[in-house]
Computed example of a mutant assay.
Amino acid sequence: IGRQVALAAAANLTPVTLELGGKSPAIFDPSCDLDAAVASVAYGKLLNAGQTCIAPDYLMVPRGQGATIAAKFAVAIAKLYPRLGDNPDYTAIVSERHHRRLSDMVAEAREGG
């Protein structure tokens, strides 16, 4: 009976594509060009609102450079999307309900430390 099942299944195979995205760190070496690295990572993270399988999820930066790199990200993002709020080339949250849900998640994460 196993052979019959295998033949029946083979006659009905459907091709599929699997999305195998995972956590994608961006690692900043102490010798890297910070401006170039930040510009590249900001572009990669914001492309399609970060909804790509290779969008960076977190940064690993040299100790003591977090604030500097965060400030450089603010500049890079403003350069890419100077009017993010009403920019037709960028996506948005689809409804007020989803916006509240996401805002609640951020608040919960902040409260949890």
Rank of each mutant, 00 (worst) to 15 (best):
D104N: 11
G22R: 09
Y58S: 04
A37Q: 15
D35W: 15
L80E: 00
A6E: 15
R63G: 05
A70R: 14
K72D: 08
D89P: 07
I77H: 02
A71Y: 03
V38G: 03
D89Y: 09
I27Q: 09
V5I: 15
A37S: 14
T52Y: 03
F73D: 04
A8R: 13
V106A: 04
V94I: 14
C53S: 04
T91D: 07
L80D: 00
N48G: 00
G64P: 07
D86N: 08
L80H: 00
I54P: 00
S95Q: 04
A67I: 11
G22V: 04
A26P: 08
N12Y: 08
V41G: 03
T14K: 15
V5S: 13
L18F: 11
P56H: 06
A11Y: 08
A78K: 07
P15A: 09
S24A: 12
G2A: 10
G44F: 07
P56C: 05
I1N: 10
A67K: 11
A71Q: 15
A11G: 11
A71F: 01
S24Y: 10
K23G: 02
V16H: 15
K45N: 01
K45D: 01
V75Q: 10
A67T: 13
R63W: 13
A37E: 14
G2C: 10
P30R: 05
